[in-house]
Amino acid sequence: MPRLTDIRPPVIPGLLLLAVIVPLLGGCARESPSEKPPIHVVPDMDHQPKYKAQAESDFFADASAMRLPVKGTVPRGYLRADDAFYRGRDETEAYVTANPLPPTAEVLHRGEERFNIYCSPCHGKGGRGDGTVVARGFTQPPDFVSDSLRQMPVGQMFEAVTNGVRNMPSYRHQLRPEDRWAIIAYLRQLQGMTEPGDTLE
Protein backbone atom coordinates (compact mmCIF):
# COMPACT_ATOMS: atom_id res chain seq x y z
CA MET A 1 0.00 0.00 0.00
CA PRO A 2 1.46 3.37 -1.04
CA ARG A 3 2.07 5.81 1.74
CA LEU A 4 0.27 9.16 1.62
CA THR A 5 3.61 10.93 1.48
CA ASP A 6 4.32 9.27 -1.88
CA ILE A 7 1.33 10.93 -3.55
CA ARG A 8 2.00 14.13 -5.52
CA PRO A 9 -0.73 16.48 -6.75
CA PRO A 10 -1.31 15.91 -10.50
CA VAL A 11 0.21 19.23 -11.54
CA ILE A 12 1.70 18.14 -14.84
CA PRO A 13 -1.25 16.02 -16.08
CA GLY A 14 -3.55 18.88 -15.05
CA LEU A 15 -1.64 21.40 -17.14
CA LEU A 16 -1.66 19.02 -20.09
CA LEU A 17 -5.44 18.60 -19.79
CA LEU A 18 -5.92 22.39 -19.76
CA ALA A 19 -3.68 22.70 -22.81
CA VAL A 20 -6.05 20.39 -24.68
CA ILE A 21 -9.36 21.84 -23.48
CA VAL A 22 -8.68 25.54 -24.04
CA PRO A 23 -7.90 25.29 -27.79
CA LEU A 24 -10.92 22.98 -28.20
CA LEU A 25 -13.18 25.68 -26.77
CA GLY A 26 -11.46 28.26 -28.91
CA GLY A 27 -12.26 26.13 -31.95
CA CYS A 28 -15.98 26.78 -31.59
CA ALA A 29 -15.45 30.51 -31.33
CA ARG A 30 -17.50 33.12 -33.12
CA GLU A 31 -18.13 33.28 -36.83
CA SER A 32 -18.15 29.55 -37.10
CA PRO A 33 -21.11 29.06 -39.45
CA SER A 34 -24.07 27.13 -38.12
CA GLU A 35 -27.46 26.28 -39.55
CA LYS A 36 -29.00 25.90 -36.13
CA PRO A 37 -31.00 28.90 -34.92
CA PRO A 38 -29.32 30.92 -32.18
CA ILE A 39 -29.98 29.74 -28.64
CA HIS A 40 -30.37 32.54 -26.14
CA VAL A 41 -29.65 31.33 -22.64
CA VAL A 42 -31.80 34.07 -21.18
CA PRO A 43 -34.62 34.60 -23.71
CA ASP A 44 -36.16 37.58 -21.90
CA MET A 45 -39.10 38.66 -24.08
CA ASP A 46 -37.33 38.10 -27.39
CA HIS A 47 -40.39 36.42 -28.84
CA GLN A 48 -43.70 38.11 -28.23
CA PRO A 49 -47.07 37.05 -29.56
CA LYS A 50 -47.27 39.78 -32.20
CA TYR A 51 -46.78 40.09 -35.94
CA LYS A 52 -43.81 41.88 -37.43
CA ALA A 53 -43.49 42.93 -41.08
CA GLN A 54 -43.43 40.00 -43.52
CA ALA A 55 -44.03 37.53 -40.71
CA GLU A 56 -45.77 34.20 -41.07
CA SER A 57 -49.31 33.77 -39.80
CA ASP A 58 -51.14 30.57 -38.99
CA PHE A 59 -54.46 32.40 -39.12
CA PHE A 60 -54.70 33.35 -42.79
CA ALA A 61 -54.95 30.75 -45.53
CA ASP A 62 -51.94 32.07 -47.47
CA ALA A 63 -49.82 32.13 -44.27
CA SER A 64 -48.97 35.80 -44.70
CA ALA A 65 -49.43 38.18 -41.76
CA MET A 66 -49.45 41.19 -44.10
CA ARG A 67 -52.78 41.74 -45.84
CA LEU A 68 -53.71 43.54 -49.04
CA PRO A 69 -56.16 46.44 -48.85
CA VAL A 70 -59.78 45.42 -49.37
CA LYS A 71 -60.68 45.47 -53.07
CA GLY A 72 -62.15 48.78 -54.21
CA THR A 73 -60.89 50.78 -51.23
CA VAL A 74 -58.55 53.75 -51.51
CA PRO A 75 -56.20 54.64 -48.65
CA ARG A 76 -56.12 58.30 -47.65
CA GLY A 77 -53.86 60.27 -49.97
CA TYR A 78 -53.86 57.56 -52.64
CA LEU A 79 -56.75 58.70 -54.84
CA ARG A 80 -54.28 59.63 -57.60
CA ALA A 81 -56.79 61.67 -59.56
CA ASP A 82 -54.07 63.65 -61.37
CA ASP A 83 -53.94 61.71 -64.64
CA ALA A 84 -50.94 63.60 -66.00
CA PHE A 85 -48.87 62.77 -62.94
CA TYR A 86 -50.07 59.25 -62.18
CA ARG A 87 -50.81 57.94 -65.69
CA GLY A 88 -48.83 60.16 -68.02
CA ARG A 89 -51.97 61.12 -69.97
CA ASP A 90 -53.92 64.35 -70.36
CA GLU A 91 -57.72 64.94 -70.51
CA THR A 92 -57.89 63.68 -74.09
CA GLU A 93 -56.05 60.45 -73.14
CA ALA A 94 -53.04 61.62 -75.18
CA TYR A 95 -49.55 61.15 -73.69
CA VAL A 96 -48.26 64.22 -71.88
CA THR A 97 -45.21 65.77 -73.50
CA ALA A 98 -43.92 67.79 -70.55
CA ASN A 99 -42.52 66.25 -67.40
CA PRO A 100 -44.63 67.34 -64.37
CA LEU A 101 -41.37 67.50 -62.39
CA PRO A 102 -39.17 70.44 -63.39
CA PRO A 103 -35.62 69.18 -64.10
CA THR A 104 -33.93 70.82 -61.14
CA ALA A 105 -30.49 69.63 -60.07
CA GLU A 106 -32.15 67.78 -57.19
CA VAL A 107 -34.61 65.95 -59.48
CA LEU A 108 -31.86 65.01 -61.95
CA HIS A 109 -29.64 63.72 -59.15
CA ARG A 110 -32.49 61.61 -57.79
CA GLY A 111 -33.27 60.40 -61.29
CA GLU A 112 -29.67 59.39 -61.93
CA GLU A 113 -29.48 57.48 -58.65
CA ARG A 114 -32.78 55.66 -59.24
CA PHE A 115 -31.86 54.96 -62.89
CA ASN A 116 -28.60 53.35 -61.82
CA ILE A 117 -30.39 51.17 -59.25
CA TYR A 118 -33.50 50.06 -61.13
CA CYS A 119 -32.85 50.56 -64.86
CA SER A 120 -29.13 50.11 -65.43
CA PRO A 121 -29.09 46.31 -64.87
CA CYS A 122 -30.71 46.03 -68.33
CA HIS A 123 -30.47 49.48 -69.93
CA GLY A 124 -26.84 50.08 -68.92
CA LYS A 125 -25.50 53.09 -67.03
CA GLY A 126 -25.44 55.14 -70.22
CA GLY A 127 -28.87 53.95 -71.43
CA ARG A 128 -27.42 52.14 -74.45
CA GLY A 129 -29.09 48.79 -73.67
CA ASP A 130 -25.88 47.09 -72.55
CA GLY A 131 -26.57 46.21 -68.90
CA THR A 132 -25.06 43.25 -67.04
CA VAL A 133 -28.36 41.34 -67.08
CA VAL A 134 -28.52 41.63 -70.87
CA ALA A 135 -25.08 40.04 -71.01
CA ARG A 136 -26.58 37.08 -69.10
CA GLY A 137 -29.27 36.50 -71.68
CA PHE A 138 -32.07 39.04 -71.16
CA THR A 139 -33.59 40.46 -74.33
CA GLN A 140 -31.68 43.60 -75.26
CA PRO A 141 -33.70 46.78 -74.68
CA PRO A 142 -33.60 49.59 -77.26
CA ASP A 143 -30.96 52.31 -77.11
CA PHE A 144 -32.26 55.41 -75.30
CA VAL A 145 -30.10 57.63 -77.46
CA SER A 146 -31.81 56.39 -80.63
CA ASP A 147 -34.14 58.71 -82.58
CA SER A 148 -37.28 56.65 -81.92
CA LEU A 149 -36.82 56.90 -78.16
CA ARG A 150 -35.82 60.57 -78.31
CA GLN A 151 -39.15 61.22 -80.01
CA MET A 152 -41.18 59.19 -77.51
CA PRO A 153 -43.42 61.45 -75.38
CA VAL A 154 -42.54 61.42 -71.67
CA GLY A 155 -46.06 60.22 -70.89
CA GLN A 156 -45.45 57.05 -72.89
CA MET A 157 -42.16 56.47 -71.05
CA PHE A 158 -44.00 56.89 -67.77
CA GLU A 159 -46.58 54.35 -68.87
CA ALA A 160 -43.83 51.90 -69.84
CA VAL A 161 -42.16 52.16 -66.43
CA THR A 162 -45.50 51.94 -64.64
CA ASN A 163 -47.14 49.09 -66.52
CA GLY A 164 -44.27 47.47 -68.36
CA VAL A 165 -43.93 47.13 -72.12
CA ARG A 166 -43.05 44.04 -74.19
CA ASN A 167 -40.34 42.20 -72.15
CA MET A 168 -39.96 44.97 -69.61
CA PRO A 169 -41.88 44.29 -66.38
CA SER A 170 -43.86 46.87 -64.45
CA TYR A 171 -41.81 48.86 -61.94
CA ARG A 172 -44.78 50.33 -60.10
CA HIS A 173 -44.06 48.31 -56.98
CA GLN A 174 -40.39 49.29 -56.87
CA LEU A 175 -40.59 52.93 -57.94
CA ARG A 176 -42.90 55.66 -56.66
CA PRO A 177 -44.49 57.93 -59.32
CA GLU A 178 -42.25 60.90 -58.43
CA ASP A 179 -39.17 58.70 -58.81
CA ARG A 180 -40.39 57.46 -62.20
CA TRP A 181 -40.69 61.08 -63.36
CA ALA A 182 -37.26 61.89 -61.93
CA ILE A 183 -35.79 59.00 -63.91
CA ILE A 184 -37.50 60.27 -67.05
CA ALA A 185 -36.07 63.75 -66.43
CA TYR A 186 -32.60 62.18 -66.13
CA LEU A 187 -33.23 60.14 -69.29
CA ARG A 188 -33.98 63.30 -71.22
CA GLN A 189 -30.62 64.57 -70.04
CA LEU A 190 -28.93 61.31 -71.16
CA GLN A 191 -30.63 61.76 -74.53
CA GLY A 192 -29.21 65.27 -74.75
CA MET A 193 -32.67 66.81 -74.86
CA THR A 194 -34.27 69.59 -72.90
CA GLU A 195 -37.96 70.06 -72.88
CA PRO A 196 -39.64 73.29 -74.02
CA GLY A 197 -39.81 75.83 -71.24
CA ASP A 198 -37.49 73.91 -68.92
CA THR A 199 -34.73 75.66 -67.14
CA LEU A 200 -31.83 73.90 -65.50
CA GLU A 201 -30.92 75.28 -62.13
Binding site: E31, P33, S34, E35, K36, P38, I39, P121, T132, V133
Partner: peptide, 24 residues
Protein backbone atom coordinates in the same frame (compact mmCIF):
# COMPACT_ATOMS: atom_id res chain seq x y z
CA UNK B 1 -24.69 32.47 -30.12
CA UNK B 2 -25.80 34.60 -33.09
CA UNK B 3 -22.82 35.42 -35.32
CA UNK B 4 -22.45 32.85 -38.08
CA UNK B 5 -26.13 31.85 -38.16
CA UNK B 6 -26.61 30.62 -41.71
CA UNK B 7 -29.95 28.89 -42.22
CA UNK B 8 -30.78 26.91 -45.33
CA UNK B 9 -33.17 28.94 -47.45
CA UNK B 10 -36.01 27.60 -49.61
CA UNK B 11 -34.19 28.93 -52.69
CA UNK B 12 -30.47 28.71 -53.30
CA UNK B 13 -30.15 32.44 -53.93
CA UNK B 14 -26.62 33.78 -54.29
CA UNK B 15 -25.86 37.38 -53.35
CA UNK B 16 -22.39 36.74 -54.74
CA UNK B 17 -23.84 36.36 -58.23
CA UNK B 18 -26.54 39.03 -58.13
CA UNK B 19 -24.93 41.77 -56.04
CA UNK B 20 -21.29 41.22 -56.97
CA UNK B 21 -20.96 39.69 -60.44
CA UNK B 22 -24.02 41.43 -61.89
CA UNK B 23 -23.48 44.56 -59.79
CA UNK B 24 -27.17 44.96 -58.95
Amino acid sequence: TDVGYRPTQPVFYSHLLHADSLGI
